[in-house]
Nucleic acid binder design. Structure first.
Lengths: 230, 230
DNA sequence: GTTGGTATGTTGGCATACCAGAATACAGTC
DNA sequence: GACTGTATTCTGGTATGCCAACATACCAAC
């Protein structure tokens, strides 16, 4: 029994549906579809080159993810984001990420330290480079190391989903010069606390970081109310 | 403009899809479909009396909710729950519910106090009654008051979704005699802390409560490993 | 010119049809 | 009787078709 496991071929066979979900999610998160924009099914069929069944199922999935909302009569729309929602999301992230950092600090071993160091290096390089997409990815990768090392896989799923919903805000805050200065400092502080195996310090560092991020988001969102509630 | 708002008819028109999602979710949460059981689409069509399109879209939605997982070759099955997953879920609930209770305590006014008291009364009655479904609902209603008063609507969504995933465990723990004794005491303590406007005490009370619940769940799940990972 | 009515187009909700892969049953062969 | 190859069935993936509701445009009548 064990011997066969080695040569099992796991025939991944990505379905069109899965591909469509990824594409659509990417398009929404990257801002290619504006907030509140209607997602006309037949148009998406043309753009994706698949049938309506596939598009509709993908939309249902993204709807449950909170990236798409279906209005009673007029069909699916890219979800809008109120500042109130964003505030709540930052609060939740703060709880989950602080807890993950603390557990990561508790459980960190040499391998984790190495991975975390590498992620931090990439992150700092991305901050210096100034490429938004790279910075976004590097930040994600950094946190993924933390959640993974902490063993918080479900919390990571939740955080990723929440991040999708505030992706436009994240892109905004990540590109803020204010953030470009404080970002690496924050991240370095988080990393150091974890490597020092200090759970409380790690949690505090993460919490402070997110507090700042939320504040930047608020300043850029609240004034002109970019995305109002309706 | 304002005058017309009064007589706007909001034509809810529940779609078959929405109904199907609710039905399926209920069937899974209530345990009518066993964990790991295959969800054969055509069979569901017969049972629900709708077409495959509707069933499939409903399944996609529940898949994103984490209640259903689609295996690469053989289609959708009711999601399995490992103790590791359950443990993480209890941890997350602890964070979110403690935070909600704390904010609820900060913001509690007379109206909240009244609603909370009513919910607690129902809950205690349900504990006494011993009807599992009623107890489940009353517990949900109690927490809904807390999250609603705290203004944590998104966290509430997340908690509800997580609760769906551990619904079988919740049913188990709620019906445990051990819980029947300590449950009302815990809930009363939570309620009192909130009414006393003591955020820290409220958070601690919720945290303790969930710690116990998780422990009961562990004891009932870990020994025989009811739902293994694969 | 405004108003009421009709025709047309757009679009989502739902149902059905077709196909291919996998599993199972079955039959033939040694 | 065990094994192998084939036929059948099951089932999910995908595409397409139909319909009703809503929106828009156009038209006629006053």
């Amino acid at each position: 029994m064990d011997r066969t496991d080695d040569l099992r071929i796991d025939h991944a066979a990505p379905t069109l549906r899965a591909l469509a979900v990824d594409r659509l999610r990417g398009a929404i998160i990257s801002g290619r579809f504006a907030s509140g924009e209607r997602l006309v099914e037949r148009a998406l069929c043309d753009q994706l080159g698949v049938s309506r069944s596939v598009v509709r199922e993908a939309i249902r999935y993204l709807e449950a993810e909170g990236l798409v909302e279906t209005q009673p009569r007029s069909g699916p729309v890219v979800a809008r984001l109120s500042w109130e929602d964003a505030r709540q999301i930052y609060d939740i992230r703060r709880l989950l990420e602080a807890a993950a950092a603390a557990d990561c600090a508790r459980r960190a071993d040499e391998a984790v330290a190495e991975r975390l160091g590498a992620a931090l290096a990439r992150l700092i390089a991305a901050f210096a480079g100034g490429e938004p997409a790279a910075l976004y990815d590097a930040t994600t990768a950094f946190y993924e190391v933390i959640f993974s090392a902490a063993g918080h896989s479900i919390a990571w799923d939740i955080v990723q989903r929440l991040n999708g919903r505030i992706s436009r805000l994240r892109a905004l805050t990540l590109s803020t010069t204010n953030r470009r200065v404080s970002g690496p400092a924050h991240m370095t502080r988080i990393c150091e606390a974890i490597l020092a195996r200090d759970p409380d310090a790690a949690a505090a560092a993460v919490s402070d970081h997110l507090h700042d991020a939320a504040e930047i988001a608020r300043q850029s969102l609240a004034p002109q109310s970019l995305e109002d509630t309706q």
